[in-house]
Design a protein around this nucleic acid. Structure first.
Length: 230
DNA sequence: CCTTGATCATTT
DNA sequence: AAATGATCAAGG
């Protein structure tokens, strides 16, 4: 068993590849891929995601698009506890803070990224060493009508405040299922945004994140037992 | 600096 | 304990 050498041809192949990783530990997958394993993630926060990208044949990179553009599918690993509940929020994409007037939800990066997602749960409790963390069962998700509405509502509220020059009043407390939070290498990084009087200001870069309540519902739905036949 | 991969660490 | 705000690494 070894990492994929090319991108999957279709979504079925992608899902099959992902599901074949179930039950392996990150340490086993790293060893088979000839990659060194960090003792912790303090300085390797994106390690799991990049390891899985390698295994699934994602054309690695930091391009602002889906991981599998031909399939229209985004890959997200998600750390879960012993009860299958998410341990962290889920990063969606970078948030542009200027030139956003007139952008519609259906044309947004968030909508595009979340239109189809391959979720891969991975044990994430800090008392389990990275090498020992087990990969769970992957599944492909598309937002339901209601989930799309929840996302759209949060997105529109947040984007409206950004456009109105209220970025400095926007906190992670805004949004029911999705929030805006800092996203940068450190607090010294600054980008341009719109100020209260429409002038240009400098502020910390931000990104969109899915809150745990939202991803917990996705996981619950995916792993709910189907109705039993009598 | 922008954007990806996220988790860490401090505050509530 | 949970949530918010801050941070680490790498490619472009």
């Amino acid at each position: 068993m070894q990492p994929a050498s090319c991108p999957p041809a279709n979504s079925t192949e992608l899902l099959t590849r992902a599901q074949q990783l179930a039950g392996f530990t990150l340490g086993e997958l790293a060893e088979m891929a000839n990659i060194s394993i960090p003792a912790n993630f303090q300085r390797h926060k994106g390690w799991s995601g990049q390891l899985i990208e390698l295994w699934l044949g994602a054309q690695a990179g930091s391009k602002p698009q889906q991981d599998f553009p031909e399939l229209g599918i985004e890959l997200k690993t998600i750390p879960i506890d012993d009860f299958g509940k998410p341990l962290e929020t889920t990063y969606v994409c970078y948030a542009h803070l200027t030139g956003i007037a007139g952008i519609q939800w259906q044309q947004s990066n968030v909508f595009n990224k979340l239109s189809r997602v391959l979720w891969l749960p991975i044990q994430g409790s800090r008392d389990i060493a990275p090498a020992q963390r087990q990969v769970g069962s992957a599944f492909i998700w598309q937002p339901s009508t209601r989930q799309n509405q929840q996302l759209q509502q949060d997105w529109e509220e947040i984007m409206d405040k950004i456009a109105m020059g209220e970025i400095e009043h926007l906190t992670a407390r805004h949004g029911e299922v999705m929030q805006l939070r800092p996203k940068a290498a450190n607090g010294q990084v600054l980008t341009t945004a719109v100020g209260a009087d429409g002038q240009q200001i400098k502020t910390r870069p931000r990104g969109f994140y899915l809150k745990k309540n939202f991803t917990a519902a996705i996981l619950k739905q995916a792993f709910a037992l189907p109705p039993q036949s009598p």
